[in-house]
Nucleic acid binder design. Sequence first.
RNA 1: CGGGGCGUAGCGCAGCCUGGUAGCGCAUCUGGUUUGGGACCAGAGGGUCGGGUGUUCGAAUCACCCCGCCCCGACCA
Length: 577
Amino acid sequence: MRYSKLFIPTLRDDPADAEVISHKLLLRAGFIRRVTSGVYDYLPLGLRVLRKIEAIVRDEMNRSGAQELLLPMVQPAELWEKSERMEKYGPELLRFNDRHGHESCLGPTHEEVICDLISRELRSYKQLPMNLYQIQAKFRDEIRPRFGLMRGREFIMKDAYSFHADEASLNAEYDNMFATYCRIFERFSLNFRPVEADGGSIGGSKTHEFHVLAESGEDLIAHCSGCDYAANVETAMSKRQAVNTPSAALLMVETPHVTSAEDVAAFLHADLSTLLKTLVYRAVGGANDGMIIAACVRGDDQVQEIKLTHAIAADSIEMASDDEIAQIGGITGFIGPQKLNCKLFLDHSLTAACGLITGANKANAHITGLDVDRDLEDIHFADLRETRAGDACNTCGAEIELSRGIEVGQVFALGTRYTEPMQVLFQNQQGKRALATMGCYGIGISRLMAAVVEQCNDDSGIAWPQALAPFSVGLISMGKSEAVLQTSAQIYQALLDAGIEVLWDERNERPGVKFKDAELIGLPMQLVIGDRGLKAGVVEMGWRKGGRSEVAVGDVVAKVIDLLKGQLADKNTGSIN
RNA sequence: CGGGGCGUAGCGCAGCCUGGUAGCGCAUCUGGUUUGGGACCAGAGGGUCGGGUGUUCGAAUCACCCCGCCCCGACCA
């Protein structure tokens, strides 16, 4: 491609409304443009990268035995009624009526559609297992789209759905997909980590998320420094080192206007971890909708709300209002677990704890000497605390570390969560009707593009890994002498003939402009053809990640072919730099 | 939805407080010079100042309403 013919609207300044590096660079380098909140145009360069990501994903999915198909974006409401997600999915599901008044929605995910398809076509166990996938635009009316491609409302996703005759088959495919995902992210040269995760609203029992490690990540993941345990903090488990205080008599102490755990500890000259913190929540959805409950953790711990949500079997939870707290006999700022008129949940770390400081359920007062076994009744223990850096690993005891991650993929063993309501049945070997089990596996294609940029950039711009670069080579003609133009044209044509994607910058621009643009858009290899080099019979070869050398004009094409083929071969065998 | 911020040329911004000719840098177009790290000279084009209503002789500027965008929280690929 000739640069002068390519639509690359680069920007010299960072756009004011971009915050994270990938958003800024993708806009500046002319890969994307915003249409409206969370919705983007993919310009030619952006599309080229997107297609490369898709190609790798497709290649590995096909290799894993999955088959590609394409499902509709517009889905009838009936299917969502049938799976009982019409209500449950909430306002994130964009609904609309067609001219006949028929209610439809834009697909945020495709369990319903695929189950509907399979339920009509599946007859025999002999057709199973089966893994079908598609790469397609999804629409989720996100509460808060942000960070450019990182969290859009419309985004490109690879979603796969597998169907099985039994649990063992599902587990085998789960492992197969897990391995496939590892291969995919390795081919992207990404620093990533698979982690144990929460099922979220999709439901299901077993699930892992794949996170690209990056400061701008929206998720916190806990991982062990000693073994390969890694989990999203939403579910991560660990041991904590608590200060053990001796048992003591209950005593009420005055704490005027001292409310936060930190302030109480300071006021009473106590260690934060000797406090028992009580938070009051209201269950939303589920069998216990509206129920008020109290959750206790140590003063230096935080309640992990996802864990609490599971502990009380709710769809979600919200902090209780001051009025709701008063109704159960508490006072905001001075809540304690004693004599609260609601269900009481304590974190495991409080098992048999004594000598604790806690709220007195009385204004301006706290209690010291609380003994969990002695002073509290009818308590439920659960894992409620959020794992912190420095905790001990449950498996090996080594130190837990926390990192930020961008979730680029997730694998679920769904079981019969969808196949049951959608009636995905088949005839088993015994001739009986049986329910299929199901797994689903997603990869955020467009989000991956942002995640890669988050990891591959420097002050000059993007530095694409070879496998994803929109062009492998940037051919820069320096000056406009006949010799430069002719040599450039020859090399350009020879590279094209060799099947190498090359962007020839033949614009009548000064060298600085060409270099800056080449670095901004992040092409991995640069070939500079100028009068200075031609006099010595050489072309300059530079790498985006650093390093320059000179190659004889006559050898350039062969050399480039050799280097690029070598790099691509490396990627395919999984040996990643 | 709650909290914070913003909206003036394609991009980045000033002007607003204290009402009176709409400005700067970059980009763009024309001509010329220049060509190994975002050139220079001369000239030119480009604006319903997010929208509406009001106050006023007069509104980018003041008031009210609406819309949009960004950031922090709940959602998730």
